[in-house]
């Protein structure tokens, strides 16, 4: 059973961490992540940059390009993990472990309908060098 574990928190708080604090949280999360990756229960995970860097494309007619995130909320989507577990209970246990490593905010555990792992020509970070 595939789940997305969506990480919500107040980005004002998270992006207020100093480098040391950020590194410590990331190191604690890495311990949990690497353990789960070894068991094959965790797939890709990623972290999003602040919503001030976001652009929203409204599929209206004509389409509208708006500066900023889709929704102005108190807590923002800051990243996610892809989990492969047998029961929801297992996903909740993972949420508990991650939450202990990084308190504050909430995780939304949402089943996945389609999962395309990508591959082929997709190499993250390769594009910017070519664009220049």
């Amino acid at each position: 059973m595939l789940y997305a574990l969506l990480c919500y928190n107040d980005e004002d708080v998270v992006w207020n961490w100093d480098k040391k604090q950020d590194d410590e949280v990331m190191a604690r999360l890495a311990v949990v992540r690497e353990r789960l990756e070894r068991t094959g229960k965790m797939g890709p995970s990623l972290r999003l940059l602040p919503t001030t860097a976001a652009t929203t494309f409204r599929k209206s007619d004509p389409p509208l390009v708006i500066d900023g995130p889709f929704a102005e909320t108190k807590e923002q989507l800051l990243g996610f993990y892809i989990l492969d577990v047998t029961h929801l209970e297992e996903a909740l246990q993972i949420a508990r472990d991650l939450g202990e490593a990084n308190p504050g905010g909430a995780y939304e555990i949402r089943p996945l309908a389609v999962y395309n792992p990508g591959g082929g020509a997709f190499t993250p970070g390769a594009v910017p060098a070519e664009v220049s």
Partner: peptide
Amino acid sequence: MTDPAWINAAITAAR
């Protein structure tokens, strides 16, 4: 349990 580092970050952000 609330981590002191979290409290400090929350206060700084709310300031």
